[in-house]
């Protein structure tokens, strides 16, 4: 069976796995954002907590992915939950560190002027600092997403969903004539998903960044 034949026959299956994969990525990214953005803001505002927060986020990124997936199995059992937990932690560092860097890059003059006009700390954060830091933060989110899309393929090794299962199937049926197709299909699917998500980020960039700072 040629690769094209495989693709036409398994189109449905690949699409389903791709959606599973995407789901895994989006849920993990959502959790990472909900946790990472506030952590980044705290790290920016509190010099004392900055290094502990960044080191902790960096610590997770240093751990081998298989180890991080595995550690949650005793807690959550096999399946999507341990994968989501691990991927969320992986996604943390780029989000947190870019939030810190983005907020630090906001011009002190703009901050001082906003303060001098009587904005409260919260108004300043919401209306001035976060919008101005947003391009850098968005880059962090984009990097995180790319990392998570790739690593999510490993989730299959610990019984998780997504395109990794197709690669794993191929690996286990090694020697079989269809094995390469499965591996190519899974790998290609991940790459396509990564490219699509990257394109989505370009669009989000266009839509969410003020013309004044583009």
């Amino acid at each position: 069976m040629t690769f094209t034949e495989y693709l036409t026959r398994n189109y449905d299956n690949l699409l389903e796995l791709g959606l599973e994969h995407l789901n895994l990525v989006l849920v993990s990214m959502g959790i990472a954002l909900v946790v990472g953005l506030p952590l980044g803001i705290v790290a920016h505002r509190n010099g004392f907590l900055r290094n502990p927060i960044l080191s902790t986020a960096g610590f997770f990124l240093t751990l081998p992915s298989l180890a991080l997936f595995a550690i949650f199995i005793p807690v959550f059992g096999i399946g999507a939950p341990p994968a989501i937990a691990a991927l969320s932690l992986y996604a943390l560092l780029p989000i947190v560190s870019n939030t810190v860097a983005g907020l630090a890059s906001v011009s002190p003059a703009v901050v001082k002027a906003s303060q001098g006009m009587g904005m409260t700390g919260f108004q300043r954060l919401l209306r001035v600092e976060l919008p101005l830091a947003w391009p850098v933060i968005l880059t962090g989110i984009r990097v995180s997403t790319q990392v998570v899309v790739g690593i999510a393929a490993i989730a299959a090794l610990v019984g998780g969903p997504g395109l990794g299962t197709e690669i794993f199937r191929g690996l286990r049926s090694q020697g079989n004539a269809s094995a390469p197709n499965l591996v190519y299909g899974g790998t290609l699917g991940v790459i396509v998903l990564a490219l699509l998500l990257d394109a989505a980020f370009l669009l989000i960039r266009r839509l969410t960044i003020s013309r004044g700072i583009r």
């Binding site: 790739g150 393929a153 090794l157 591996v183």
Partner: peptide
């Protein structure tokens, strides 16, 4: 940059398939 999106697991499997274990 495109390489960023390539999953390491898939890449190694492909290398193994092309050569051997």
């Amino acid at each position: 940059n495109i390489g960023q999106g390539v999953p390491s697991f898939g890449l190694i499997t492909i290398v193994i398939l092309w050569t051997s274990l």
